[in-house]
């Protein structure tokens, strides 16, 4: 589904965030992306939905070179990818419901679909009774769950979650992982960036570890760090 061929990303300020990445992610996979802060994890995901372009190499999504897509094709690429951002990126003047509905709205969904689908996903992330609140009145963990609801409301084929449990207590985190498992079973490919050792260790999924822009480990059913 996603292939990286010799991908290097150098930011305009000269920082080399990724260095010759080769990676193949298959449809239906559940993959943990781990590594120290600044290793290039977020950068790698930004290349997939074309928030950034690779400096060298190619990123293919379903066989299409993402960098070569016409700009009017990009929205349709992004609609198939649900993105949970590390910094949430919620709209402060919109309510929880409106924030989630927005993802449907930009695709031109009907009112009926929106009224049916949004409460569904808010229930999934346990925010059904906070639908009318503004993001500023929510805790960090609740905001994060709004972001998750927004990412899955479109039934994406790929879900990218950048530290989705970063602000959650352990219990909520585990609840969220159950939800992800469910979504994954339904056929959605999941890439999850995380620093949560216990979760990675317990889930026994594929683990890709980055360090200073390079893949230092790619292990099926691995743990958070190398077991020596």
């Amino acid at each position: 589904m996603i292939r990286f061929y010799g991908v290097t990303k150098v930011y305009p300020n000269g920082v080399k965030a990724l260095d010759n990445i080769n990676l193949h992610i298959k449809k239906g996979e559940f993959l943990f992306l781990v590594g120290p802060s600044g290793a290039g994890k977020s950068t790698l995901t930004r290349l997939i939905f074309r928030e950034e372009l690779p400096t060298r190499g190619q990123v293919l999504f379903n066989g299409r070179n993402v960098a070569r897509m016409r700009s009017r094709e990009v929205p349709y690429l992004r609609r198939r990818i649900g993105m949970v951002f590390q910094d949430f990126r919620l709209l402060p003047q919109k309510t929880v419901f409106e924030n989630v509905a927005f993802a449907l709205e930009v695709t031109g969904a009907s009112s009926r679909d929106i009224k049916r689908r949004v409460p569904e996903v808010l229930k999934l992330v346990g925010l059904e009774d906070k639908a009318g609140m503004l993001p500023a009145h929510l805790s960090g963990g609740e905001q994060q769950r709004v972001g998750i609801a927004r990412a899955i409301v479109n039934n994406p084929v790929l879900l990218i979650a950048d530290e989705p449990t970063g602000n959650l207590d352990p219990e909520t985190s585990w609840g969220l992982m159950e939800l992800f498992q469910q979504i994954n079973k339904a056929g959605t490919t999941i890439i999850m960036i995380t620093h949560a050792r216990e979760i990675v260790d317990a889930m026994k999924k594929r683990v890709v570890a980055l360090e200073s822009g390079r893949i230092v480990r790619d292990e099926e059913g691995g743990g958070y760090s190398r077991e020596d």
Binding site: F49, E51, S71, R72, P75, Y76, L77, R78, R79, M83, F85, R89, L90, L91, F102, A103, V106, T107, R150, N154
Partner: peptide, 10 residues
């Protein structure tokens, strides 16, 4: 910016 990440057309 957010609209574009959510797949809004130009």
């Amino acid at each position: 910016g957010i609209m574009k990440y959510l797949g809004a057309t130009n």
